[in-house]
Amino acid sequence: MSFFAFLGTLEIGLVYGLVALGVYLTFRVLDFPDLTVDGSFPMGAAVAATAIVAGVNPWVATLLAIMAGGLCGLVTAFLAVRCGILHLLASILTMIAAFSINIRIMGRPNIALLGEDTIFTPFETLAFDAGMDGSVFRLVVVLLLVILSGWFITRLLASDFGLGLRATGVNSRMVRAQGGNTALYTYFGLALSNGLVGFSGALFAQTNSFADVTSGVGTIVVGLAAVILGQTLIPGRKIWVAVVAVILGSILYRLAVAFALSSGMFGLQASDLNLITALLVAVALIAPRMKTQLKRGGKKKSSVAAKKMA
């Protein structure tokens, strides 16, 4: 893997780190199986790209993308909370609807951003004037944005409101018994989660210079892979540890995929990306159980040995 390919892999891993944060909020914190991210990710990209092409300031376009992603989450929450639709089905309905809406937003299946100003353009110009490669500056900007997002999530979950958010995912009946509004927590959690995913979609479009209606296919699996892989490798109960773990999990996942594809390991090709993702998620899910079983087996052997010695 070349140096520039390595930088590109780190960049895309950080961009999808925002997706991992969003998936962490729904699956781990709220215990809400949300597939909306497959629709909110391309919606963030579509809104940002359309706004930039229309001459809107890139930062404003990115903010609009975050709001569009959050709106997707609110629709899913409304279907689940207000209409009583099963969580998984509610998110699938929103995801399907978002596909058509994204085409409406862009007016066509994809939009190119070549030659358009993005949030990275000033930094790339600065790098060019200094005789440096713009990809390094772009990577630093993405890193700072992800760090700020992770810091915000950590502070939020450590607050009193965040405690209610986490309690809703653990025991919603207890929260209601204490006078808490579980519906409010669900609305907020899903809006924030998909807002982060929309933010990731906007960064994806601006770093890759295009937005495509199919770019969200498999996003939920990538997010789950990052969350499961990160928390398997870096276990911990503290909030900041979990946040760092899911971001690092996204980076490690992308590095593993890039290495497997670039090295030609097992004859893998770029079209095998979803297969690699599914295998990594399966391994990450099985690993903790195998570790627990091995520990139990070791304890049983030691107890049997102790009885024989006695």
Score class of each variant (00 low, 15 high):
residue 4 F to E: 15
residue 6 F to M: 09
residue 6 F to S: 08
residue 13 G to L: 06
residue 19 V to A: 04
residue 24 Y to H: 07
residue 35 L to W: 02
residue 50 T to V: 13
residue 53 V to F: 09
residue 53 V to A: 06
residue 53 V to D: 01
residue 55 G to E: 11
residue 60 V to N: 12
residue 63 L to Y: 11
residue 67 M to I: 13
residue 71 L to I: 09
residue 81 V to W: 13
residue 94 T to F: 01
residue 96 I to V: 10
residue 99 F to S: 12
residue 101 I to N: 05
residue 107 G to F: 05
residue 107 G to W: 07
residue 108 R to Q: 15
residue 110 N to L: 08
residue 115 G to Q: 04
residue 121 T to G: 11
residue 124 E to W: 06
residue 124 E to Y: 11
residue 124 E to Q: 12
residue 127 A to I: 05
residue 131 G to Y: 02
residue 137 F to G: 10
residue 137 F to E: 10
residue 141 V to A: 12
residue 144 L to W: 12
residue 145 L to A: 13
residue 147 I to L: 11
residue 150 G to F: 03
residue 151 W to F: 15
residue 153 I to D: 05
residue 154 T to D: 03
residue 159 S to N: 07
residue 160 D to P: 10
residue 162 G to T: 08
residue 164 G to V: 04
residue 169 G to V: 09
residue 175 V to Y: 02
residue 176 R to N: 11
residue 178 Q to F: 14
residue 181 N to K: 08
residue 182 T to R: 08
residue 185 Y to A: 05
residue 188 F to T: 06
residue 194 N to M: 11
residue 196 L to R: 00
residue 196 L to W: 00
residue 204 F to Q: 04
residue 217 V to D: 10
residue 221 V to E: 09
residue 230 G to P: 00
residue 251 I to P: 00
residue 252 L to K: 09
residue 265 M to S: 13
residue 272 D to H: 02
residue 274 N to E: 04
residue 276 I to V: 15
residue 279 L to V: 12
residue 279 L to E: 05
residue 281 V to H: 03
residue 296 R to P: 15
residue 297 G to R: 14
residue 308 K to L: 14
